[in-house]
């Protein structure tokens, strides 16, 4: 009987090195902050409308509602802020990886030769900061594929170009 782990041949396949991971653009934090604030104001506005039109009578607990919204968004903000530093990616010779998460950490690696197609998107706010999203799709049930937010547009294009060349080459 052999232990599977002992059997891994030492054919020197590249291992992940923590320092190889690059952080995403700092500017993306602005995008996150703006998103959080937009949702914050929408929620406040929503409560205001409900109170003003008296669809549901919440005048008695109005202050509590505003206060809890404030607390929730402060927490979301804090989580996003702390989590931002954890968003890192690395493009290696044959695969691309992305890691993120503060409480639930996750590192996903997609080998180039399993990629079906690549996509670059820009939201309205991201466009203002010249940032883009790189999405990597694999075949089949691809609910959980790789997506890197907050790359510089040209960086995203460069990675896409690189991967396309690697796949074809």
């Amino acid at each position: 009987m052999v232990n599977s782990f002992q059997n891994i041949a030492v054919t020197s396949f590249p291992e992940f090195v923590e320092s190889e991971f690059k952080p995403i653009e700092k500017k993306y934090l602005n995008v996150i902050i703006i998103h959080v604030f937009i949702f914050f104001f929408i929620s406040i506005f929503g409560v205001f409308i409900v109170d003003y039109t008296k669809i549901i009578d919440i005048s008695a607990i109005l202050l509590d509602v505003y206060f809890s919204i404030l607390i929730i968004f402060a927490l979301i903000f804090l989580m996003q802020f702390l989590g931002f530093k954890k968003r890192k990616y690395v493009v290696r010779e044959k695969d691309i990886s992305y890691k993120s998460g503060l409480v639930f950490k996750k590192t996903t690696t997609v080998p180039f030769n399993r990629i079906q197609h690549l996509e670059i998107d820009q939201g309205p706010i991201s466009r203002f900061f010249d940032l883009a999203v790189l999405s990597v799709f694999t075949a089949g049930n691809s609910s959980d594929d790789l997506k890197i937010n907050g790359l510089k547009k040209e960086e995203a294009e460069k990675i896409k170009e690189f991967i396309s060349n690697q796949i074809d080459g």
């Binding site: 639930f104 950490k105 996903t108 399993r114 089949g140």
Partner: peptide
């Protein structure tokens, strides 16, 4: 296998363990 993930919660981090998830063309 199509892509591989390592998942870790902060509780797992303290015990130095992690989950490995293999995504195939027909599920995880």
């Amino acid at each position: 296998i199509q892509h591989v993930s390592i998942k870790q919660t902060i509780f797992q981090e303290r015990k130095n363990v992690a989950d490995v998830v293999f995504q195939t063309a027909s599920g995880k």
